[in-house]
Design a protein around this nucleic acid. Structure first.
Lengths: 192, 192, 192, 192
DNA sequence: ACTTAACCGAGACGGTACGTCGCGTCTTTCT
DNA sequence: AGAAAGACGCGACGTACCGTCTCGGTTAAGT
């Protein structure tokens, strides 16, 4: 019994890849997560890696996305409007922190490399849009937000400004700035 | 004196570089604008190119930025609030059009390649922030917008959502979507 | 009892491997006879294949060697000297034909891959050396060839020139050339 | 003046490649002369290497061929027949020595990789055929060899047997064996 | 007939080398 | 002098095939 072999071999290999990628990302950001480096550190061969992901960005998206999902649980307790605010606050503090840079690099890379887009969407965007859609519906039902605005639009308005600041990096996105931006954005969504 | 040499030789060479880059960008987006291709098409050697720009993204930013500046003149006629709205409308229709993709690629590249950030800022961000700041101040003076929001924040809130949609590409940023997003964002900025 | 199982399963599998290899060799030469291709076409798994042969060259040597043995029966009728000449003629026409290329590839591969040498020897060289040795001895007994030359040496002198031409490919080994070479080589062996 | 720059840069790089290849060949034969290893040892990048040679076999052929040419000067002194014999003797002792293995590997590789054939011919075959052709003509003029045999055929008959023994490796090609083979082959060429 | 152990097909895996691409630097040659 | 031309080092890419392995299902024997 050389290793705990509850998983079939391939699953262990893929876990190893994601673990190595997470390490490399935290050490040197996306540029450090080359396929060669991931292969060397994980002990998984490049050929095997390419059987499971189309490009390195996809690997990084999956590895980092799982981290982020764990770091930002969806708020589920309070009333709709404050859940929304709380969610924005959590995400913005994530962006403003050290992980924000990696997120920006990933988003950038998924633009440059369209093969990675589905991965980026799967691990960063879709769940968040769904979650916001649910909160938005609840808020709508209670008349707390403007009914002419769709959940899609609301998501863009809430997170877009933060991401814009993050990507351009100037002025830097601090926690305080993130708060100001979030409140302003929220202001356009709440019912009068 | 075979050519009008009001500019020294190098200036004409740099124009040639920017022209070639513009062509390449329109033909194949940022991936087509490799330094080798730019050099070959412009007839300017790579060494000379690298004397003026730190990396290829910087060239593309300058070439494309000048185009964009020409394509989106700053509105200066109406009252402040509608100038603001008009500006957002112009930018969003630029983003939603075929040039939007190239803009997204450029923004992405300037994240991946920090040496290009100053160029991207210079040709895309700073002027826009300045213009918005001026419009914002005028609107403030007339009490048309919320005074607790800074011009910086306003800029983020107005353009961030569009850029977010553009970068993630899902759902696609159409002209109609851009309008909905813009109105929602503007809604949070106007005075009650 | 769906198939005649006089052979155990593995023997039928090995026949299937050799058949598939023969097909692949004739379709694309040695480069086409990859282990994966052989496995796929024969329906025999790679693991099973590697239980019976040390490397792919060995498989190809066996498959092609059996073909060649069938294509070139040993002459056994005439007098010794003309049997020798006839044997050389048969071999050289085989070399000069389409199969010659594959033979050359196999010889080349068995140099590059020493594990295959015994197979190549078994299926191509040993029997031929034995046959020539017998013919040589008969010729010797009748005083038709130079007695100071061993059968080994005679074999080298008779077949070496053809193989040399075949391997280097320049000038190409045509049937006419093969005849000239064979006669010249034979000339050095016959008794004065 | 950092290095002796009598050559342009590329020539120095190519010399460096050939030198590194020669070392690697002598250390581990052709299998050791991978392009990566050549690149690492020579300090010349793979991209540059591939601008000058189509494949690794071509590099090895050139590197080893120059060595061999230096190791086997063409005899030019005695009468034609003994020059021929002397040439065969020199080549056969080269084949029988440690370098013979590498020669065999190279010939094998140039069969497997047709892109290398021209290089192999240029560095090993053409010059030798030319030299033998000259010796053969001289011998012909003096009536020392059979006039119905062409120089091409003579070359095949003289060197083919040695190469055949070398490639098959069984029985091994020793110096004594080489002598026996050479004499037998020569016997068929000399005039009665 | 029913188990049970050997065996096999299928194919994923680690490994090695491949040949290619684009960047940014550097040298050579020409104007 | 300064620029065009383009070769070069570098580092990463994605691919191919090798020979080994793990897994699950079938076969052919032993009970």
């Amino acid at each position: 019994m050389p290793e705990q072999s509850s998983h079939p071999r391939s699953l262990r290999a893929m876990d190893s890849v994601l673990g190595a990628t997470t390490e490399l990302l935290s050490e040197g950001g996306l540029p450090a997560a080359t396929v060669d480096a991931i292969s060397a550190r994980s002990g998984v061969s490049k050929a095997t890696i390419y059987k499971h992901w189309p490009c390195r960005t996809a690997i990084a998206a999956e590895a980092f996305g799982k981290q982020m999902a764990a770091a930002i649980p969806l708020p589920d307790k309070g009333d709709a409007a404050s859940d929304l605010a709380e969610q924005v606050r959590r995400v913005s503090s994530f962006y403003a922190g050290p992980q924000g840079t990696i997120f920006a690099q990933l988003l950038a890379a998924s633009v440059a490399d369209p093969a990675a887009s589905p991965y980026f969407r799967e691990y960063f965007l879709d769940k968040r849009r769904e979650a916001v859609a649910e909160l938005w519906q609840r808020a709508l039902d209670r008349g707390e937000v403007k009914p002419e605005i769709s959940a899609e639009t609301a998501t863009d308005v809430l997170f877009g400004p933060l991401i814009f600041r993050l990507m351009t990096g100037h002025p830097p996105l601090t926690t305080e700035e993130a708060d100001k931006i979030s409140s302003a954005a929220l202001g356009g969504l709440l019912a009068d």
